[in-house]
Simulated assay, not measured.
Amino acid sequence: MVQASENLQAKPDLPRTLSVAYRMSPPTMALAEAGTLAVFGFDAGIPFSEDPRWLRVPLECFDAPAPLEVWHVDATVTCGRHDNVRWSAGGGWLFAAIELDERETTGIEGAARNAYDELCRFMRTRDERCVLRIWNYIADINLGEGDAERYKQFCDGRASGLGDFFAEGFPAATAIGHHDSEPVLQIYLLACVDEGIAVENPRQMSAWRYPRQYGRTSPGFARGMLMPARDALAISGTAAVIGHASAHEDDLEAQLNETLVNLEALLAAADMPEGFDAHSPLKGYVRHASDAARVRALLQQRLPGVPVLLTHGDICRHELLVELDGWRFR
């Protein structure tokens, strides 16, 4: 990936062709629309679909009914399956996803290694091989102590499966723990024929430089990724981390406020407009379901009019109570 020292201004020869939005509609309706690249559901009761563009994310949404997340491109979309990978592509963009049951591997480390190895082999067959954004959803993410914590084992397996695939730089990413009854590792990504620009937050240490206390293998991700046309910023999972340390332990409101400060710092580093608007959807991950109403009220106060999809998910560090990710469109 290109690093953020490059000129961040919009490239007029690369018009925006990707949109991300939350919508209240049946999945069949969203999938039937021209240009639909991917549709994500956050409600366990949503009917299953064989369409490769459809993915049920194993996170409980605090809204009922839960909205869909829809990715749309201004192009004809094709889709299919390649072994365990489902995919769709159009207009130079690619969605790819894989789900592996840990019981069929050697636990989370083996599942991560196998999943990333298969994803990398698939990506090498594609023209859209510039990976811009990845989401990882992991069962029991904080279970275990020290290097035996499942998130740290996931990082070990991920690095092994990736090899040198991200030798030129990491994409933006999120890793969240789900509460599904099945121990399934779910990974999905957005890629493009063109490179983006990785963006780091000046308030935070780059994740791949974390000290040894965070595991044998540091997390590999950029804090954000500017899309090729420089018209949108994909925001990685962001929490109350300053430098490499978690801040405000046991203080939900202070953690959320620190997270919003980090988001503003990232927007500034990416030369994006301040704040968020109705066209810049965010996703919130709340560790304790009992905190959801308070998080919603605080976000409505701090980010009025901004669409936020709140889900029940565990942050990769047990002391962190809330995390945000999402998009900022110009």
Rank of each mutant, 00 (worst) to 15 (best):
D180S: 15
S280K: 06
Q3Y: 08
G80A: 02
P202K: 09
G224Y: 08
G90F: 04
V193C: 13
R23V: 13
R16Q: 14
L310C: 10
L100D: 11
T105W: 04
A239F: 07
L94C: 04
H312M: 00
L226M: 08
E249A: 09
D83M: 09
A265L: 10
D101A: 04
A293K: 10
Q204A: 10
A112F: 12
R158D: 14
F329R: 05
K11V: 08
P307N: 07
A198V: 05
G45C: 01
G177A: 08
A229S: 15
I315L: 14
I242Y: 09
F40G: 01
L59V: 05
E274D: 12
L14F: 09
A207M: 14
D13F: 02
L267G: 02
C79F: 14
E6D: 11
A293Y: 01
S49M: 04
A96I: 04
E249G: 07
A21F: 02
T174R: 14
L320N: 11
S236C: 02
W54E: 00
L100I: 14
L37I: 03
G243A: 05
N201M: 01
Q3H: 13
P67S: 03
D164P: 08
E50W: 00
A293S: 07
G80V: 03
N262P: 09
A239V: 04
Y285F: 13
A270P: 03
E60S: 06
R330V: 04
Y214L: 11
V70Q: 01
N7Q: 09
I315N: 13
C316R: 09
S290M: 06
P281N: 04
I108P: 08
G92Q: 12
D51L: 00
L309K: 02
A245L: 11
E99L: 01
H279W: 06
I108R: 08
N7I: 03
R113H: 14
S181L: 03
V70W: 03
R56G: 00
R328V: 06
A112D: 13
T78P: 01
E128C: 15
R230V: 05
L266K: 04
A175T: 12
H279F: 09
C79R: 11
P58W: 02
V308Q: 08
E200A: 14
D271K: 08
S280C: 02
W135A: 14
D51K: 00
R129A: 15
P65A: 08
Y188I: 01
F154R: 06
D277H: 02
D127N: 15
Y22T: 09
A245I: 00
E264L: 03
A44K: 04
R86S: 10
Q186A: 09
A4N: 06
K152H: 12
A96C: 12
K283I: 08
G220V: 05
R223N: 15
R126W: 10
I46R: 00
D147I: 01
Q9G: 05
D271R: 07
R121K: 12
R158M: 15
R56D: 00
S49Y: 03
S246A: 13
E145W: 04
G313V: 04
M1R: 09
N142F: 03
A75V: 06
S236V: 01
L37S: 07
D127W: 11
